[in-house]
Computed example of a mutant assay.
Amino acid sequence: MAKAKLNFKDIDVTVTVPVGVRVIEISDKIGSGIVYGCREGDCGTCLMKVEDGWENLSSTSVIEDKVLRENAAGRHYRLACQAQVLGDVSVSPA
């Protein structure tokens, strides 16, 4: 199984994760400041900033695009409940 490094800037922790895991799954386990109110991509509370490795996350879904627009999220912001890790990436709470 392919692995990638996922770094949480807010707590200065890097973990090795299986490719395809959603950021929120790991954030929840290690106590990062990325909060959430759902896991379905329609509330926007898990908004995170992608510090490095933007290209190493899955493409945004239609629902995620809608929520990002509604929250006026900038270019390097994603929903942790939707973003799947495909390679090395660094994130922080929005």
Results as ranks from 00 to 15, higher is better:
Glu40Val: 12
Ser27Gln: 00
Lys5Leu: 11
Lys29Glu: 15
Val62Met: 13
Pro93Gln: 09
Gly44Ala: 09
Val17Ile: 09
Trp54Tyr: 14
Val62Ile: 13
Lys49Asp: 05
Ser27Tyr: 00
Asp65Arg: 06
Ala73Gln: 01
Ser58Thr: 06
Cys81Gln: 13
Ser61Phe: 12
Asp65Ile: 02
Ile30Glu: 09
Gly44Thr: 08
Val17Ala: 03
Lys3Glu: 06
Val35Asp: 10
Arg69Asp: 14
Asp52Glu: 15
Cys81Leu: 11
Val89Ala: 01
Asn71Trp: 12
Ile24Arg: 03
Gly44Tyr: 02
Gly41Gln: 11
Val85Glu: 00
Val91Tyr: 00
Asp65Tyr: 09
Thr14Phe: 15
Thr16Asn: 15
Ala73Glu: 02
Arg69Pro: 02
His76Gly: 07
Asp12Thr: 04
Val21Met: 06
Ala80Leu: 00
Asp42Leu: 12
Gly20Lys: 08
Ile24Phe: 05
Val19Cys: 02
Val91Met: 03
Tyr36Asp: 12
Gln84Phe: 09
Ser27Ala: 15
Thr45Lys: 07
Leu68Tyr: 14
Leu57Val: 13
Arg78Cys: 03
Ser32Lys: 00
Val23Arg: 04
Pro93Val: 01
Val21Asn: 02
Gly87His: 04
Ala73Arg: 01
Leu6Pro: 06
Asp42Gly: 13
Arg39Gln: 15
Thr45Asp: 07
Met1Tyr: 08
Leu47Gln: 01
Arg78Leu: 04
Ile63Thr: 15
Ser58Asp: 03
Thr16Gln: 14
Val67Arg: 00
Gly20Ser: 07
Glu51Met: 11
Lys49Cys: 04
Gly33Ser: 13
Val23Leu: 02
Ala2Leu: 09
Arg39Thr: 15
Asp52Phe: 06
Ala83His: 03
Ile34Leu: 06
Ile34Asn: 00
Val91Ile: 09
Leu68Gln: 04
Glu55Met: 08
Thr14Pro: 15
Ser92Phe: 00
Leu86Arg: 09
Arg78Ala: 01
Ser61Gly: 13
Val35Ile: 13
Ile26Met: 11
Lys49Trp: 01
Glu40Thr: 12
Leu79Trp: 07
Thr16Ala: 10
Val19Asn: 01
Lys66Tyr: 15
Val23Gly: 02
Leu79Gln: 05
Asp12Gln: 14
Arg75Tyr: 11
Met1Trp: 06
Lys3Ile: 04
Asp88Pro: 07
His76Ser: 10
Gln82Leu: 04
Leu68Ile: 12
Glu70Val: 05
Gly74Glu: 05
Gly41Thr: 09
Gly33Phe: 10
Leu57Arg: 12
Ile11Gly: 06
Asp65Lys: 09
Leu6Arg: 11
Val85Ile: 09
Arg75His: 08
Val50Trp: 08
Arg78Pro: 02
Phe8Val: 02
Tyr36Gln: 10
Ala73Cys: 04
Asn71Cys: 10
Glu51Asn: 10
Asp88Met: 08
Gln82Trp: 03
His76Asp: 11
Cys43Pro: 08
Cys43Gly: 11
Ala72Arg: 12
Ala4Cys: 14
Ser92His: 03
Asp12Glu: 15
Ile26Trp: 01
Lys29Leu: 15
Gly87Lys: 02
Glu55Ala: 12
Lys3Pro: 00
Glu25Ile: 00
Gly74Cys: 05
Tyr77Glu: 03
Val50Cys: 08
Ala80Phe: 01
Ala4Ser: 13
Tyr36Phe: 11
Leu57Gly: 13
Ser90Met: 06
Pro93Lys: 03
Glu25Arg: 02
